[in-house]
Design a protein around this nucleic acid. Structure first.
Lengths: 159, 159
DNA sequence: ATCTTAACCATGATATCCCATGAAGACCCA
DNA sequence: TGGGTCTTCATGGGATATCATGGTTAAGAT
């Protein structure tokens, strides 16, 4: 498996440790020493990814001509706000309480797969957000079969 | 770890000493005898980096055709205003009070990772700055996946 | 001699490592 | 197919190391 899929709710123990879902750890592949976590720009949640992915991001930043203020913005917000969290022997990370509380995470964390990255939510806030995005998807008339059909006009394969 | 990530708030004792975060010291790698600090051009904060990085900076200055007055300005501001701060046995630096007070740092310092460099902030001013950055990011509708997606149009790879 | 500065030592809090347990699922073998 | 076993994984606790921080002593400067 190479992508982060599905979602899992795990407990935070009194030391602040949480098990990262085994399938997520498997998806990390080579750089499986830990993950990187930072506050999402859009949601009341944390974004997580592999260290390699963060480096990719930093390369992306250098490659394109971003406005200085945007560049500046991302450097402080992402790199300044991100935390590298190594796994312990059991595949757990210890989530800094400051990060957790900043997005309303308390005694449980929902790990939500988003292909190349994943998110960490307060489970209760996630269901609310999920309901909202579903209705938004309906409103915009998004459907997977349509997307696949549209894509297969360009490529031969499709999924 | 090779980059400066995350942020840490440490105390300044009555002698003016502050612990440089252990992960930052690790990120310094080979030239880990100390750091270089100077006033940020953009913010009310101090910029910090390794000595090696400062040399890199000076080399890249020479390579580009800067106007003489700009060059002059940078020389005096950065190189003239920079201070080399060695570590003591416990990984602390003693921050000159003149530098600290010039950016409003008093009894605590926030070390903010910015990949190749880091910054030293008054913690309170940092949270204000951070909040401003975030709302700016939202206003501009910046998202990381967009940035990566945009970058991968230039490269062959994609993710 | 006194003040300042730098090296050395001490301590508490926090995080890391290591081992234990229990539940759930996969697998195997009748 | 049903029962049983074995493995994987999430979770918990105790021991140990790391780290930030404070103080003390020695050395150098004024």
């Amino acid at each position: 498996m190479a992508v982060f899929l599905s979602n899992f709710v795990n407990k935070i123990d009194k030391k602040g440790r949480v098990s990262v879902p085994a399938s997520f750890r498997a998806a990390l592949g080579s750089d499986a020493s830990g993950i990187v976590v930072f506050r999402s720009l859009q949601h009341e949640a944390l974004d997580g990814c592999s260290i390699g992915h963060l480096e990719l991001l930093s390369q992306s930043l250098e490659k394109q001509d971003l406005a200085p203020d945007v560049y500046e913005l991302i450097e402080t917000t992402i790199f300044g706000g991100s935390v590298q969290l190594p796994f312990d022997g059991e595949g757990r990370i210890s989530l800094p309480s400051s990060l957790a509380s900043s997005v309303g995470i308390e005694e449980e964390v929902a790990f939500v797969g988003r292909r190349k990255t994943f998110q960490l939510w307060n489970p209760k806030k996630l269901v609310a957000h999920d309901a909202a995005s579903r209705s938004a998807a309906r409103a915009k008339d998004i459907s997977l079969s349509k997307i696949i059909a549209a894509a297969s006009k360009f490529e031969n394969g499709g999924f």
